[in-house]
Design a protein around this nucleic acid. Structure first.
Lengths: 222, 222
DNA sequence: GTCTATAACCTGATAGAC
DNA sequence: GTCTATCAGGTTATAGAC
């Protein structure tokens, strides 16, 4: 697990770190509702009252965890998309790779985000605003919009770019249990299937962003 | 709600029908874990023990509900995709419309399916098999594969077609709370946004399925 | 068939000893 | 700081009266 240790929680205390780690794992795996404080305590190797000493309520604990998780995601895109000297197919390809490496470590992360958005979208949005991640997100948006204004991209509303990119990126992970059960070839692993998916994903994003002639040209490079 | 009344549950008893309806609504809205038997009883206008008379356990009740829901979905595609005289763009467009009309009635249906697949994929898969929906699904698959064999479509593995189609179709609904909060234009409704999304969705599916030249030709018709 | 009453359990949370 | 003991509240489920 250990999504990345760029977190701002006081890891000075080893018990606290153990708790956060256990909570992070269980919340992602089973969601807020189906994770009990007892589960977390058991996994962290302590007992319930000790949990409540560190994080007074279940809700406060969840907030401590969600910050860590969200902050691990947006920076991944940020660096890659803003490298303007690279051809677009390579840049988007790089973004996919960055997300893939995260998702292979934590396959249920997309599911977690979607589930908790559904449970309490305002909470997640306000967390993102508090962490000033919306500033970075705005930079990403500007970067794409610039390419649209100079005519290299179709003028696609940015929200539809997000729907496309994230939809195509995370759908195999949202359906992973079904895919693992009935859609893998003999001996194929889920990770191998994800790698085969990548060119199709890229193809469709380019079909959205590029004018027809440019799209056909770019197909050679995939 | 009333997803469609092609269900096989004994609706002879009006109380039982009321219960199913209430349970269907709440399970879809909040999911299995966060829906209590008391909630269902309250919404159906009876009390808890009466619930347990009709459906001995919460689990049995959920199974009764899931059958109704799943059976409302696959037939929608089935009829449309097999009309071979229609041009492909129109057929897929029709499928999108069919799903849209379902999702506008029940916007949290995709979320529900994804959430419960994650909770217990085997249960959902075995339900589908029990209902013989896999036979209809196989027909849909054959229909697509036929067009690939005769060279009208690219030879895209069928699982990737599903990832594309359902990913692009349901992502706006999975993100609906975020979209409603920060991605709508002034005065725009979520339904209007969905309609604007449709041509982009279609464009990307065609980019996947059609050879480059055919794709460029088809773009005129969108 | 539908209700009242109640069992048995698990949840999050707190008080207080060490 | 971390434990034991305990609380109040909500959960599914059942037994038995009507």
């Amino acid at each position: 697990m250990s999504i990345q240790d760029n977190n701002k929680t006081d890891n000075h205390n080893p018990t606290e770190a153990k708790i956060i780690e256990a909570a992070k794992y269980l919340f992602i795996q089973k969601g807020y509702a189906e994770t009990s404080m007892s589960d977390i305590a058991a996994r962290a190797g302590i007992n319930r009252p000790a949990l409540h000493y560190y994080f007074r309520t279940k809700d406060k604990m969840f907030h401590a965890v969600i910050g860590d998780i969200v902050s691990a995601i947006i920076p991944k895109v940020y660096k890659l998309l803003t490298k303007k000297e690279m051809p677009i197919a390579n840049r988007i390809g790089g973004m996919i790779d960055a997300y893939y490496s995260l998702f292979i470590q934590i396959p249920r992360l997309p599911m977690f985000i979607i589930r908790e958005i559904n449970r309490d979208a305002d909470m997640l949005i306000s967390t993102i605003i508090q962490m000033h991640l919306n500033v970075k997100a705005q930079n990403v948006i500007n970067c794409i919009q610039e390419e649209m204004n100079c005519g290299k991209f179709n003028k696609v509303p940015i929200r539809f770019f997000f729907c496309s990119f994230y939809g195509l990126l995370v759908t195999p992970l949202l359906m992973q249990d079904v895919i693992r059960a009935v859609m893998l070839e003999d001996g194929e692993t889920f990770e191998q299937m994800l790698q085969k998916w990548k060119p199709y994903l890229l193809r469709q994003i380019l079909a959205l962003l590029l004018p027809p002639q440019e799209f056909v040209k770019a197909l050679g490079g995939i």
